[in-house]
């Protein structure tokens, strides 16, 4: 497969962004507490009503790094409709032979806090597709998504970039 044609095609898609999609669950105390229980996170802003009430927030907030838990695809019913531009790019790479995939870097920047009752929406942009690179994992391309999460007031909650290496398996690899 000629990767240069695929690369050109995908680089032309950079900047494409999905529509805003509504997250299935409102931000809620039960999911926050379950997260804190699993992580053993004792920050009282997340689970101690009395402490949170007298804090600058005036009430419980969610751990900011939890935001992605609201956008993970449900087990059932399966998500329908068009895949987002990042998913399309990763699929195109896989079809062209780079079917190994490993996440390499993620950055989250936080703006307004998430509070119980917030309704989040998110959109996904294809942010970058790199030329061919050879890494210790394998030879392939870095593909970067940018997720933007907003609340019901259209305030930006978080912008997350997420980079994966899509590579041709065969040489050194890891799951």
């Amino acid at each position: 497969m000629d990767m240069s044609g695929v690369l050109e095609e995908l680089q032309a898609m950079v900047g494409q962004e999905s529509e805003l999609q509504l997250c299935k669950d409102d931000v809620n105390k039960a999911m926050i507490r379950h997260w804190c229980e699993a992580m053993e996170d004792g920050n009282p802003l997340y689970t101690d009503e009395a402490y949170a009430k007298q804090s600058k927030y005036g009430g419980i907030i969610a751990p900011p790094q939890m935001v992605q838990a609201y956008s993970t695809p449900p087990l059932w019913p399966k998500k329908e409709g068009e895949p987002d531009p990042f998913a399309k790019a990763v699929k195109r790479m896989a079809d062209a032979g780079c079917f190994g995939i490993v996440a390499t870097t993620t950055t989250q920047e936080y703006f307004v806090p998430m509070r119980p009752g917030d309704q989040l929406r998110f959109k996904v942009k294809l942010a970058a597709v790199s030329p061919e690179k050879t890494t210790r994992i394998g030879t392939g391309h870095f593909v970067t998504a940018e997720y933007t999460y907003v609340n019901q007031k259209d305030e930006v909650v978080c912008v997350q970039s997420f980079t994966v290496l899509t590579f041709k398996p065969g040489a050194a690899g890891r799951a």
Binding site: W35, M39, N43, P63, M66, T105
Partner: peptide, 25 residues
């Protein structure tokens, strides 16, 4: 991400606010 955030706010205390986290895997 959950462990990184927890590690940082365990250190700072609850008034320390996370603004940005970069994670290389």
């Amino acid at each position: 991400g959950g462990f990184v955030g927890r590690y940082l706010t365990d250190w700072s205390g609850p008034e320390g606010e996370l603004r940005k986290i970069t994670i290389k895997l």
